[in-house]
């Protein structure tokens, strides 16, 4: 564990808490993409099945349980409890265009052709693109509430911090995992446009307006 990975996990934790608070406090999931949340739940389910097979540390286990529990809690809030506020008209990104290539890539490009390893690889590739429906929805609605942009900033920062973690681990432990690194870079690059708008607008108190 290093400071970058811990900061990344905390940023990820913060993002999920911000999202849950937003939905719970405003009793609305307006502006949030349910499809992205479904993809995140699938990502964590596929990646954290090893919860039952191998023990890394208490921290690792607690965080995995938390990420799985909160991702399903978010889906429950969006698709059941506050279903009336779910904006399905703007949440229209074709997720099959993500799932199919990610599945094929996981079967072809992995470290080891085993069930658990292919699931892990699938989850790494899926996480890289899981935010696309959300970013698509923000561009379609042309704007996002500031709480939603703080959620996106924390979520985008998490994998950016992981990139520093991988650089750190490469130089200190000579550890690197190209699949995680490449997917992590792709994932972070997808946020660049949003990061720019976040720093130039949201942090100046303006609303996040995207040129629709």
């Amino acid at each position: 564990m290093n400071v970058f990975r811990l900061a990344g996990d905390m940023s990820h934790l913060l993002a999920i808490i911000i999202l849950l608070l937003k939905i719970w406090k405003t009793r609305s999931c307006a502006g949030i993409s349910g499809r992205s949340q479904l993809l995140f739940a699938l990502t964590y389910t596929a990646r954290y099945l090893d919860l039952v097979t191998n023990w890394v540390s208490l921290y690792n286990t607690v965080m995995k349980v938390f990420f799985i529990a909160t991702s399903y809690a978010t889906i429950y809030l969006m698709y059941l409890k506050f279903k009336a506020t779910y904006d399905s008209n703007h949440d229209t990104f074709r997720v099959e265009f993500l799932l199919l290539p990610v599945t094929i890539l996981a079967l072809v490009l992995n470290h080891e052709f085993s069930f658990m390893e292919i699931l892990w690889t699938f989850s790494i590739y899926l996480e890289a693109v899981a935010i696309l429906p959300q970013l698509f929805m923000v561009s379609k609605t042309g704007e996002a509430e500031s709480i939603t942009s703080h959620y996106l900033f924390a979520l985008g920062s998490y994998r950016l911090l992981y990139i520093f973690n991988w650089i750190w681990r490469y130089y200190t432990e000579e550890y690197y995992d190209l699949i995680a690194i490449i997917a992590g870079v792709v994932q972070t690059v997808l946020y660049c446009d949003f990061f720019y708008l976040y720093f130039t607008k949201v942090l100046k108190g303006k609303k996040l307006q995207l040129p629709a």
Binding site: R5, D9, H12, D50, N54, V56, S57, N60, M63, K64, F67, H111, E112, S114, M116, E117, W120, Y162, N165, D177, A180
Partner: peptide, 10 residues
């Protein structure tokens, strides 16, 4: 042989 339990990250 790749040690598939090497995934110690979240």
């Amino acid at each position: 042989e790749f040690d598939s339990w090497a995934h110690d990250e979240l």
